[in-house]
Design a protein around this nucleic acid. Structure first.
Ligand SMILES: [Mg+2]
Length: 229
DNA sequence: GCGACAG
DNA sequence: ATCTTGTCGC
């Protein structure tokens, strides 16, 4: 299908569409989380989107989609691997969220167009990028307590591309960046608010859980291979 | 050429 | 992402 070289050209073309200021509902009522799980033995993957109440974090809707991977994992081209199942799951969603938090970077990317940007521009919805580890950029002097923030600066042009955010005292930070229609400051506030009990936002944790379930359900209710010979 | 490198 | 129980530290 699409080649890595073509994917890079597409990113450089779409990056101009990213909006880095707040263009989202007042007040925020619902928030969605997304994640993709992989099956070690087959090339199946499952993407899930879970919508939660912004204040109570009650689950309002969930949609998942299983399919075969269509693109290899290449740092910088991650969205071409994980977006397919997420777009289909999102399409099936019965409740439209006010904003979305993706499990990966937004602007904190070599070409300033990570998964959160690609997903946001594609859906034209507010999206926040929240990665567990760093893809690019450097930061220093991050405090040890929850709520501590340190700017993530791009190595090449010294641009502010995101924030390292400590969501739990003394535990590794998460990396927050604008995906689309959410400023870095707002994105950082929201991730801290949604990461109530663990390092990761509850949205990401729940999406991860539902994607796992979807993969297991799909495999059990599918063809022959496993169990009885 | 070598090391880094979202999930 | 995935392989995976116990173990070290706060
Ligand atoms: Mg993930």
């Amino acid at each position: 299908m699409i080649t890595p070289a073509e994917a890079i050209t597409l990113q450089e073309q779409l990056r101009a569409q990213v909006i880095t200021t707040d263009v989202l509902p007042h007040p925020i009522r619902t928030i969605a989380g997304t994640d993709v799980e992989y099956d070690k033995s087959t090339n199946l993957i499952a993407g899930s989107v879970v919508v939660m109440d912004y204040n109570t974090l009650a689950v309002l809707a969930v949609a998942s989609h299983c399919m075969e991977v269509t693109f290899p994992y290449i740092p910088g081209l991650f969205s071409f691997r994980e977006m397919p199942p997420l777009l289909e799951a999102y399409r099936q969603l019965q409740v439209e969220p006010d904003l979305i938090i993706c499990d990966g970077q937004g602007l904190a990317h070599q070409r300033r167009f990570g998964l959160a940007c690609h997903f946001g521009v594609t859906l034209d919805k507010p999206v926040i990028g929240c990665g567990k580890t760093r893809l690019c950029g450097e930061y220093e002097n991050l405090g040890e307590t929850r709520g501590s923030v340190a700017p993530l600066i791009a190595e090449d042009d010294q641009a502010l591309i995101g924030n390292a955010l400590r969501t739990r005292d003394g535990i590794n930070p998460v990396f927050v960046s604008t995906g689309h229609k959410v400023s870095l400051a707002t994105a950082t506030d929201i991730v801290l608010k949604i990461a109530t009990q663990y390092r990761l936002p509850e949205t990401t944790r729940l999406a991860d859980h539902y994607a796992r379930l979807a993969l297991l359900a799909y495999k059990s209710g599918s063809k022959e291979p496993p169990a009885g010979i």
